[in-house]
């Protein structure tokens, strides 16, 4: 993990050492400035920013814009992880290698906490990064598979708003789905 102080692509405002940004940043590459919902400024290489379909269409509408792009639905923490993913992804654009890409994707999610994954989903959705959304959803599905209802609730941080009677009724109604489950 590199700290953000050494990190040429983030401004000094970002202090969390949560990103592992590639170091081979070309000095000449055009940068796009993006502002998150919690008012953090990110300078991102154009090639990376164009991975965000939402941002891409912003520049298609205003090609010469040098304005900061506001991302009102995107907090900084998941966003820095999304950038990390996209930086990896663009390497495979020049040099497609499905096996290596899969390995890289699984490496990416392996290091993430449950909370990281869950927080990145709406960001990937808002920025319309389909590959990332698929990777995240699959990782979430893998982590909650064969787990008890209670586990899944805590995984997502869901408050159970059913009464115990309501829940018992539902379990009875869908009894077929609860057979052969190891409640952990």
């Amino acid at each position: 993990m590199s700290s953000s102080a050494e990190n040429p692509t983030l401004t000094a405002e970002i202090t969390k050492p949560s990103t592992e940004i590639a170091t081979e940043t070309a000095q000449s590459a055009k940068k796009i400035t993006l502002k998150t919902s919690d008012d953090q400024i990110f300078e991102v290489e154009e090639s990376v920013a164009m991975e965000f379909a939402t941002v891409k269409s912003f520049f298609e509408d205003a090609p010469s814009s040098t304005d900061t792009v506001p991302l009102p639905n995107v907090p900084a923490k998941p966003f820095s992880q999304v950038i990390e993913f996209c930086k990896e992804q663009i390497k495979f654009k020049a040099n497609p290698d499905e096996t290596e890409k899969k390995r890289s994707n699984s490496e990416f999610v392996k290091e993430k906490t449950n909370e990281d994954l869950v927080e990145m989903i709406p960001v990937a959705n808002y920025l319309e990064i389909k590959d990332l959304l698929d990777v995240l959803n699959q990782a979430v599905a893998d982590r909650i598979q064969n787990r008890s209802v209670e586990y899944v609730r805590s995984f997502f941080g869901i408050d159970n708003d059913f009464t115990s009677e309501e829940e018992a009724l539902l379990r009875e109604e869908h009894a077929w789905a609860f057979e052969d489950v190891d409640e952990d």
Binding site: V149, V152, D159, E167, A177, F178
Partner: peptide, 11 residues
């Protein structure tokens, strides 16, 4: 089957 079980998570 697993998706069906999510029905009891919350409303």
């Amino acid at each position: 089957k697993e998706a069906a079980r999510t029905s009891v998570l919350s409303k």
